[in-house]
Simulated scan of single mutants.
Amino acid sequence: MKIRILGRDLEVSEIGFGCMGMSHAYGTVSTQKEAEELIEKAIDEGCTFFDTAEIYGTTEDPHHNEKLLGEVLRPYRNKIVLASKCGIRFDETATTVNKPLIPDGRPETIKASIEGSLMRLNTDHLDLYYIHRIDMTVPIEETAGAMKELMEQGKITHWGLSEASEEIIRRAHKVCPVTAIQNRYSMMYRDYEKLFPVLEELKIGFVAFSPLANGLLTAAYHSHGEFEKPGDYRSAMPQFTEEGLKENNEFMSWMKVIAEEKNVTPAQISLAWMLAKKPYIVPIPGTRKVNRLEENMESADIKLTQDEVKSIDEMLAHMPMSQVFGGSKIQKK
């Protein structure tokens, strides 16, 4: 797999691995053996970029994902780029399956969080550390200043922002150069394409989470009943309601036709389209299945021309489709 450059100098594989689903939001938690098989396959396929966060876990073990990766990635640590995130917590008083998020971008919170993440991940530094959501009660300059201190201390080598706007990106970048933003992006959620000009101006990378619209673009799901498991966020996502699935019938049929023309899968077309859009976009699809991970990683071998990308964009602009999950509610402190 080829590499891409995030920011000034962070080299990562064209496709990364979003590890959240092994611990959080999809109803089933991976065992260490299952995680080892996934990571081994990802490494074999040329993946060097692994993404987690301090809040990816379960009610019983809120930091499950970082702990799991700390064990499983230990043999590969010097060969990979490891990213994690800080700056939010769940509203544990909520009864919804996807509990609201409470941002906390205070410098003291960031400095405490990095210590916990480094311990759980069995490492002395992170290659990329994001503020997970923007805390509008704390000036982003203060958050950026804390990240700059962590860089000076060698605890992180690069930093980024998740779900950030142009204004926030510009203000943060003045204090400490931003390497990457990590925002939701897929064929069904293209809102952040408006950020491409500023990212190109400031030489900031775009790490795309939920690049397969939480799995819908795999074309593998056909009934809302498939998600009625405790802790499965898809049970509350609009694209997976029975109505949403019906609304997406034409879209998914079109995706299958496009994929068949290339002798690939809809998921692979989705990721190949994203890679062809901009050279600084790096999708981080997640999965708990080895065969699905292999399918995702092999998307890097599929090349779409700019004419093909333009044709797909035009179709997406006119294709009827459902709303897509836009993230958990942000709640004030």
Rank of each mutant, 00 (worst) to 15 (best):
R8F: 10
E11V: 14
S13W: 00
E14W: 03
C19K: 12
C19Q: 10
M20F: 08
M20G: 13
S23M: 04
G27S: 14
E37P: 02
D44K: 15
D44M: 11
E45H: 06
T52N: 05
Y56E: 07
G57T: 14
E60A: 15
H64Q: 13
L73A: 02
R74Q: 14
Y76A: 02
N78A: 13
K79L: 11
G87T: 06
R89C: 10
D91G: 07
T93I: 05
T96C: 07
I102Y: 03
P103W: 10
R106P: 09
I110Q: 07
E115I: 08
E115S: 05
T123E: 03
L128N: 01
I140R: 01
E141C: 10
A146D: 05
K148V: 09
Q153N: 11
Q153C: 05
G154I: 07
L161P: 02
R170A: 08
V175G: 09
P177K: 07
S186H: 08
E193D: 13
L195G: 04
F196Y: 13
V198A: 08
V207P: 00
V207H: 04
F209K: 06
A213W: 10
A219F: 00
A220K: 00
Y233A: 14
Y233P: 00
M237E: 07
F240R: 00
K246P: 00
F251K: 12
V257T: 15
T265H: 04
T265Y: 01
A272C: 07
A276F: 07
P285I: 05
P285F: 02
R288E: 01
N291E: 14
E295K: 03
A300M: 02
K303G: 04
A317F: 06
S322Q: 12
S328A: 15
S328G: 11
I330K: 01
K333I: 05
